[in-house]
Design a protein around this nucleic acid. Structure first.
Lengths: 357, 357
DNA sequence: TCCAGATTTTGAACCGTTTCAAACTTGAGG
DNA sequence: CCTCAAGTTTGAAACGGTTCAAAATCTGGA
């Protein structure tokens, strides 16, 4: 890193440039300040001629409305909080993107917060968001305790849950258990009898449910629960963790031929780790991911995975949030569940002579 | 998607629950409102006993400071704007993450904005951020025109540029041309003589510079500029676009054995596309990426690429921004340039019998 | 021309905080 | 006991908008 310093920015002595207020605009346009406010908020209720003059004055003076002041007397803010576990996970990235699109369509801004799966950090962010008087919060909560959220709502902030349905809240999720079931069933259909589930921290509800789904499929086929080894690594579920898991897998469960993963990053890491140990995918071991992030499909070895509509989740969650915040009396809480879909690509294959039990 | 509706949330009739103000706290604690404000902002200047009482009152009443009102009289806001081209690109994701970490360390919040490489959308966001009276804006600007940014700054909002150095601003970037040079040189060192550069829209400065770097390396080796084919696809540089580029590459430039890509996603897509056409990487064609996103290393076929410290970029940019915003008189603009590094992995190989010219 | 109703315009009051000059306390030193 | 400086506390006056009841203006029939 190399830095080159420039001159101090005292050129314009911007110390005491009084900011332009609505009153200045009113004076410039020769109307009352109420009229300016009307132009800003109820433009249709102002005569065309005056409106034009006000608009001109705004332009001439370079007036910019002070959102904080507007918030003070007026009802609503313009911001929405999004509290995710970690945006670096492509799942949340795409979700955030969907949320932002919905926010923009309604003229709102998104405040991005990563809780890092840390309850303390989450609390800190929620507090800040409350101080900002955000319209509402879309959150993938760290733990089951909803006291903080409850408090938040009592004070009038809308809340939409990602992935943890509770009937007193709006929530949006995919059927994680169903997805896990789908993944396991696919592997079983291909003839695999020794499975493994590679997952990030099971303290995270989504992963726990996906595992339950896997077990459900096993059970339905009359297989014992322990025919699926569980390998839990790290907390966030990164590709690097997946690679570690692959090592553990071969050491402790060499008989496994079918691996379901908690997310796509883990799956890609597992595959990389298996390659490194000389194990071919899908020839010797089949691997299924979860999420269907973009790179899953575009990978040199396209990943078989469970698809979920990530951007839609974010978009819908934000839309519900705005409905709850803006129309609290007509709003009815909804628990929306999307059904995940199996996308068969090239990392899974029917078990052959060499593989089986 | 299936929805189940719940009851209306009129349980608590939260219509007219007056919000708790600093005055209520003062009354409860038996002090003046000035003292409460002092506890909030200059806690050390208040006698321990009174501080305790105020804190208790805040707790008892569930008081939450109204950031908008605070903004009004007080100087600063608590928010920072981040305007990226598209967070879905892992480069920006990691950068955003670094920026958020820096923001959190200083008790600030990040507002996330995707310009989608659209000047109009960018302008809209900047306007909103200005209304919010953000402390400052970290931005990867869409085009060269800086009038909007200039205006923003005149009104007192700090601005830090990502990747477009200008001496009147702080800026943080990596040496993109140097990176392109590194990539091309690596391919040339391996004996490749027919190169291609696969890139997202060249209207984006970074990609343009990376191409220039590639050409610089060519020139240094005395090779004609046209020994590097340029394939420009899409605008954002996704893996899907990379796969398309691979088709184009084989159709129009079958002689190419060394491919440099504008970013890692493109590179992974190119590799996937080549595989699909029966072309092996790195046996027949070598591919270099750019960015070194996490999946590049953890991929089943680890990607040779140009590493840049993404999270650091975001972290540093935000730190500079806060310095500019909080200490305008001592602040000196800096243009920081990081040097990218070549990371040789498994998608590049010396040219052999079958490959060459 | 006059009038009732509709449409516009007005500006004082208020939103919840910070600021800051002034008032009050405290206690060490004389 | 008095004085003075340092440490605390106070509350009126902003800050820059929105609201809303009242006033002003306009409209078209009678």
């Amino acid at each position: 890193m190399s830095g080159s310093s420039g001159k101090k920015n005292s050129e314009e002595n911007r110390v005491n440039q009084r900011t332009v207020t609505i009153r200045d605009v009113a004076a410039e346009a020769g109307v009352s300040l109420g009229t300016v406010s009307n132009v800003l908020n109820r433009s249709s209720a102002v005569a065309p001629e005056k409106r034009r003059r006000v608009l001109e004055a705004i332009e001439a003076l370079g007036f910019v409305r002070h959102a904080g002041a507007a918030q003070l007397r007026g009802r609503y803010g313009r911001m929405i909080g999004l509290v995710a576990l970690d945006v670096r996970n492509p799942f949340f990235t795409e979700l955030a993107r969907g949320a932002e699109d919905a926010a923009r369509e309604h003229g709102r801004l998104l405040i991005l917060c990563n809780s890092d799966e840390d309850a303390e950090q989450e609390r800190g962010y929620l507090e800040s968001l409350e101080e900002q008087r955000v319209l509402g919060v879309v959150i993938s909560p760290v733990d089951e305790g909803t006291e903080t959220l409850e408090r938040l709502r009592e004070r009038g902030t809308a809340v939409v849950l990602l992935g943890r349905p509770r009937h007193e809240y709006c929530s949006v999720r995919v059927d994680d258990a169903g997805g896990g079931d789908l993944a396991a069933e696919h592997l079983l259909d291909l003839g695999h009898r020794h499975l493994a589930f590679v997952t990030a921290a099971l303290s995270i509800g989504q992963y726990r449910e996906r595992l339950q789904g896997v077990r459900r499929a096993l059970q339905r086929r009359g297989l014992p629960e322990d025919s699926c080894a569980v390998i839990e690594v790290g907390t966030l579920g990164t590709a690097a963790e997946g690679r570690l898991a692959a090592v553990q897998l071969r050491e402790q469960h060499p008989e496994v031929t079918g691996v379901a993963c908690g997310n796509d990053l883990l799956a890609l890491g597992v595959i990389a780790g298996l390659y490194r140990q000389g194990v071919r995918v899908p020839d010797e071991v089949s691997v299924v991911g979860f999420d269907d992030i973009e790179i899953a499909e575009q990978n040199p070895l396209p990943l078989t995975t469970i698809h979920q509509p990530k951007a839609h989740l974010g978009y819908l969650a934000t839309t519900l949030l705005l409905d709850e915040a803006l129309h609290p009396d007509t709003h009815a809480h909804q628990q929306v569940i999307f059904q995940p879909e199996l996308r068969v690509r090239e990392t899974t294959r029917a078990i052959q002579a060499q593989g089986g039990k």
